[in-house]
Simulated assay, not measured.
Amino acid sequence: MPMDEDAVAAIYRDHGAALRRFARGAVESDEQAEDIVQEAIIRVWRLAPEPTAGLRAYLYRTVRNLIVDQHRARARRPQAVASIENGFDAAIVGERVDDLLDRVVMEEALMRLTREHRQALVAVHYRRLTVAEAAEELGVPAGTVKSRCFYALKALRTALDELGVER
């Protein structure tokens, strides 16, 4: 099937910057991130069913899979060479890649929240402040902190769905 350059360009225009930020958090260089994004867009264009509301999630899953494939390919190098050169084994690398990708996905999802929702969520759920402590720190009533956390969690679930995270 011939490549529809306009369709590929539209996907790149609409999603390229966000996908690059996502990929850049897990690879060593801007060039690697760009290569992964371009490959993902072409794969999605070739293999995806008709464009749907789930296109963005499909793109993120494809980028994530390409990053994992890239790290696995490096880990398949002969063990002696990897151990001598890098001082670690493939199992540890695989765990670190998964942890890194989880962190990158969560950071991207958190950045999609409003500043107020993100602040409340981080204070209560990550920094483990009580609602009262968070309210004092943020300068808002305790009920507002609870409300912001509730809506932040809903928005976070939506953002993670858009990023292709499966429950």
Rank of each mutant, 00 (worst) to 15 (best):
M1C: 09
P2G: 11
D6V: 06
I11D: 00
H15P: 03
R20S: 10
R21S: 10
D30L: 06
I36D: 14
I36R: 10
V37D: 12
E39V: 02
I42M: 14
P49T: 10
P51T: 06
T52M: 12
T52Q: 15
T52N: 13
T52R: 13
A53F: 14
A53I: 09
Y58F: 13
R61G: 02
R64Q: 12
R64P: 00
R64E: 07
R64G: 04
D69K: 07
R72E: 15
Q79M: 11
Q79Y: 11
Q79K: 09
A82D: 15
I84N: 15
E85L: 06
G87Q: 05
G87L: 02
F88R: 15
A90C: 08
A90V: 07
A90S: 11
V97Q: 10
D98M: 10
L100F: 04
D102T: 07
V104R: 03
L110R: 01
L113C: 02
T114M: 01
R115T: 11
H117N: 13
R118Q: 12
V122Q: 06
V124D: 14
V131L: 04
A132W: 01
A132L: 05
E133R: 08
E133M: 07
E133Q: 14
A134Y: 01
E136H: 14
E137M: 07
P141S: 04
T144K: 00
C149S: 10
F150C: 13
A155E: 09
L156W: 02
R157K: 10
